[in-house]
Design a protein around this nucleic acid. Structure first.
Lengths: 131, 131
DNA sequence: ATAATTCCCATGAATTTAGTAGGAATATAA
DNA sequence: TTATATTCCTACTAAATTCATGGGAATTAT
C-alpha cells in the first residue's frame, strides 16, 4: 500500500519540467542527472507519460520533453494514475471485479470509498502547487 | 499502492470472529475453511493479530481465537495498520524519514495528507459496520 | 495417554518492482 | 552527407516483496 518508486520518480520529473519555464524541451539525460533517477528507468517512465499525453517529446538533436499542458492543470492524480500499476486500494474495487466474493463482500464499499478519498485528495495537488 | 492479500484476509477473519456471538473461541481450522484462506498463511496472520492485542488465543483442545474487544471498537485502520508492512503512502512520509531529499521535498506534505486521509477513512469502519 | 489445538522457526514459490542493455529511428547542424 | 544527440522500442536481469508451505514443540481438555 505504498506509492512505487516509479510513481515518485514520475512526480519529481514532472515537477522538474514544470519548473522549466522556457519552451525548449529538456533532454532525458539532463532530467536523469538533475533528479538522480536511473537513466534507463526514467526513459521507460517518460515513454508512459508521453503515451498518456501528459508530456510531449521532441525527437532528434536538441530534443527532449516538455509538459503538454499548463502546470496549473496537471494534478498528482493524473500522474500517479498512469504510473501506479494498481491505483486502487484493493484489486476488487476496480472496474474489473473478478473477485468471486464481490457479490456479498462486506468490505467492498469501504475499498470504493477509500479509492474515492485518495483520488479526491490527489486531484487537489497541481504541479504548480509543488513549486 | 494496493492493500495486500494478507490485509484483506485479516479483515475477513476479523469480521468472521465478530459474527461469532458465542464466547467459545473459534479454531483456526474452521476459520481457514470457512473463509477460504490457506491454513498456514492464516496461522501467521493470526499470530500477528494476537501479538497486536486485537485477538485473544486459547491454546490446547477446544482452543481457538476470539476478539479481545467488542466489535464496535475495532476499526479497519486498527487491523490494516498491523498487516500492511507499509501503511503509509510513501515511505518518506513515515516517522523514520531516511530520505535524503526530505528537507526540500515538495511532495512530502501531500504524502502526509494522503496518509491522514486514509487513516481517517479507515477509522470510520468498525467490525460491527461490516455485519 | 490421546487428540486437538496454538505457537514457532525455517524454507520455498510466485509475483512485482526496479533497473539494465543494445540498437533502431529521428532530427539537427556542421 | 556525415556526425551527433536525442527519443523510441524490445528484451532481459536482478532484487525485493508477498504469498504460501512444512515440520515439529508446547499446551490443554477429555
Amino acid at each position: 500500500m505504498i506509492v512505487s518508486a516509479k510513481g515518485r520518480y514520475a512526480l519529481r520529473v514532472m515537477i522538474a519540467l514544470a519548473k522549466h519555464e522556457k519552451d525548449e524541451p529538456v533532454p532525458l539525460k539532463e532530467l536523469a542527472l538533475r533528479e538522480e533517477i536511473p537513466y534507463k528507468f526514467l526513459e521507460a517512465i517518460m515513454c508512459e507519460l508521453v503515451k498518456a499525453g501528459l508530456v510531449e517529446s521532441v525527437r532528434g538533436k536538441n530534443g527532449g520533453y516538455r509538459l503538454s499542458a499548463p502546470k496549473e492543470t496537471c494534478t498528482a492524480a493524473d500522474i500517479l494514475r498512469i504510473t501506479e500499476t494498481s491505483f486502487t486500494a484493493a484489486a476488487c474495487a476496480g472496474g474489473s471485479a473478478d473477485c468471486p466474493r464481490a457479490e456479498m463482500c462486506p468490505t467492498l464499499p469501504m475499498w470504493r470509498a477509500l479509492d474515492d478519498a485518495v483520488e479526491e485528495l490527489l486531484k487537489k495537488y497541481t504541479l504548480a502547487d509543488f513549486i
